[in-house]
């Protein structure tokens, strides 16, 4: 055994951090994880591409295939109706990518490394959800540009910004739900399968693609108040410059509810070890 100690100094050990220090370090860690996830986003342009392609896919499919029928029934310019809904759906896809990304961190073993480090564990999720929100904004702008090429018209620039901001906001709320699912399940393929269960009902039984009046009566209460409908109606109002009733308030409430539930739940599940 050798007892020579020429080991270079380690960082000073903090045994009893104050609340202020903890908060500061948590935000530093969030920043660090955000930086890491942004690099990953840049290196995997297919993630962004996938979100945009899905959005464009919905725009083209619904507009040209169902547009005539739905537009005629509701007596509206369907593209003006559709694009805001597609923005919300695209933001939801982004939330699903939060789920997939966190799950792959588990399967790659990076989360084990994070857990062995003196860092705020919640930062792993808060950094990722912010990175996903940033990617979402880029995706939504691209989808909106395609919509404009197809003939969509925003009522105003401010309305466009507000519409994208609100869609990003609801996507951010769902990102935390996605994180909670990933923190519980921890396997990318399982997470991918589970996403279908929340993604499709929320997406299709909503006012994103068709007005609530076109749906059966028993389904209408769910469709009217569920978060994706609220967000679609709100984003639609902002984009088209028409009054939205309670939709904006309802959307903000939904975002608050999602965060209030899934921030603590996802952090709790993430920290949990065998």
């Amino acid at each position: 055994m050798t007892t020579t100690t020429v080991r270079p100094a380690s960082p000073p050990v903090v045994t009893d951090p104050s609340i202020t220090l903890r908060v500061r370090r948590a935000s530093e860690d969030t920043n660090t994880v955000l930086w890491r996830d942004m690099i990953r986003t840049m290196r995997q342009p297919d993630m962004l591409a996938f979100a945009v392609v899905m959005g464009v896919f919905f725009l083209v499919l619904f507009n040209y295939v169902f547009g005539g029928a739905i537009g005629a029934v509701a007596g509206i310019d369907y593209l003006q109706y559709l694009l805001p809904g597609v923005l919300v759906i695209s933001a939801l896809q982004g939330a699903q990518q939060t789920s997939m990304g966190l799950a792959s961190d588990f399967s790659e073993g990076v989360n084990e490394r994070f857990r062995s480090l003196p860092m705020s564990q919640s930062a792993v999720i808060s950094g990722r959800t912010i990175a996903d929100a940033v990617r979402n904004i880029a995706g939504l702008v691209l989808v909106a540009l395609v919509g404009i090429l197809m003939g969509f018209r925003f009522a105003s620039f401010g309305g466009a910004v507000a519409a994208i901001a609100l869609a990003t906001g609801i996507g951010y709320g769902f990102s935390w739900m996605g994180a909670a699912i990933a923190a519980k399940v921890r396997q990318p393929d399982m997470v991918g399968m589970l996403s279908m269960f929340w993604l499709f009902p929320l997406m299709l039984a909503s006012t994103a693609f068709a007005p609530v009046q076109s749906m059966p009566g028993w389904l209408q209460p769910f469709v009217t108040y569920q978060p994706i409908s609220a967000a679609s109606d709100a984003v639609r109002g902002l984009a088209n410059g028409v009054p939205t009733g309670d939709a904006i308030a309802l959307t903000l409430i939904w975002i608050a509810v999602l965060l209030a539930i899934f921030v603590p739940v996802s952090v709790y599940l993430y920290k949990k070890v065998d």
Binding site: R40, E108, V110, P118
Partner: peptide, 21 residues
């Protein structure tokens, strides 16, 4: 654990690095 994590390094099967970085 928060103090212990400041004093340890782990490598091998238990902890990986980021593959995209």
């Amino acid at each position: 654990p928060d103090v212990v994590r400041q004093m340890i390094g782990v490598a091998g099967q238990s902890a990986a690095v980021d593959e995209k970085l």
